[in-house]
Computed example of a mutant assay.
Amino acid sequence: MIINQLPNRTITYEGRDYLFFSGTAYLGLARRPAMQALLAEGVGQYGLHFGASRNGNLQLAIFEAAETKLAGQVGAPAALTVSSGMLAGQVVADWLAHQVEPNAVGIQAPGTHPALWHPLIKPQTVDLHGHQSLPMNLAPAYILTNSVDAIRSGLYSFDWINQLSDNQMIWLIVDDSHGLGVLNGGRGIWPQLALKLAAKPNVRLLVTGSLAKAMSLPGGVIFGDLDTLVAIRQTAYFGACSPMPPAYAYAYVHADALYAEGYERLMRNVALAEAALLPTGLFSHAPGYPVFYTDHDDLYPFLLENGIFVYSFAYPTPADKANTRIVISAFHEPQDIHNLAVAVRRFAQQHTRYSPAHA
């Protein structure tokens, strides 16, 4: 389906309106007039783009202001922004490749985002979040993982951190693209991991993420300790990159109330969806998370026929299995969720043992 407008709570295709329950704009800010007004102010001050190196001899103060605010939002010591979440992961992965020996042992959880893949590091796959024991005899030097299973809507406990060695430098690199703005009151995964690592000073934490999802900003971010981020900033990989558009950094710095309101609306909508969808037994779902995953891929064409568009395509490559999931956003109205639930229950009655008496 190809359209000519930015999705909101609805999209229009070939003259027909569809309720839109897909995408990753969890806080629903991309179409908020107040957010667009802040962006317009930013464009007026900074123009459309600043295509210069962040290490150049002319600096824009708004980037440092946004990074300070981002670090404060999640509780990290420092933050560094780049032009995309993919680049944030690649900057860190490239830097990491030059910190560890070429044959250093590393661990990568299944499903780790491609942003953290790099040809110079070759970790072994270990199902960390599936309670597979860490190969402690191999003394891992680095660990790569996502913060959350955003495809199948699963939260990770990270209890395996307790198994980590206390006497060897270990880098823990976590992609928080789908957690930032949503997990832990909107702070993302950092506070959860910082608490677990309080007794592991030998484990150095770096969290990367896309700002283009919940935060509605075309950029990426790296969270970590100040010394490490200073070192990453001095790499050629970072120095050769253009930054995110400064107008968006300006909008973010001035949008506290909008982000808070978006989070509150999102949590209310998720609660409504949980009450309406989970009794059907069709979905796997992490409490409080805005994604409802189903193995019933035929739900997608059924809902589409009923005027509802949900996420369903192969990811991360066309060769992978299609993933069908419903995504709730702050821009949805209660009636939208009610209409969705009516259609889902009708599907469930036709395809499962679901009984509306149990709803």
Rank of each mutant, 00 (worst) to 15 (best):
N137Q: 14
D159G: 10
V105H: 10
G179C: 11
F158M: 09
H118T: 04
L164P: 00
T145M: 08
G179R: 12
N162M: 03
I143S: 05
D166M: 06
L134T: 00
G188M: 07
S147K: 09
D159Q: 13
S133T: 11
T125P: 01
Y156E: 04
H131W: 01
P119T: 05
R152A: 13
P191K: 11
G106Y: 01
N137K: 13
A150S: 15
I107S: 02
Q132P: 01
G111N: 13
I161D: 03
I170A: 05
P191F: 02
L155F: 03
P123V: 06
D127L: 12
D149T: 08
L164Q: 07
Q108G: 08
S153C: 07
V174W: 02
W190L: 08
D127V: 03
P102V: 06
P110G: 11
L144Q: 06
V182W: 02
Q168I: 07
D149M: 10
R152N: 12
L134D: 01
G188F: 02
L193A: 11
Y142V: 04
L164D: 03
Q163V: 00
I170Q: 05
T145P: 04
H129L: 11
Q192K: 14
P119C: 09
Y142K: 10
K122R: 15
V126G: 00
A139S: 12
V182I: 14
N184Q: 14
H129S: 09
I121Q: 06
D175E: 06
P135L: 06
L155S: 13
H118N: 14
N137E: 13
A139Y: 00
L144R: 06
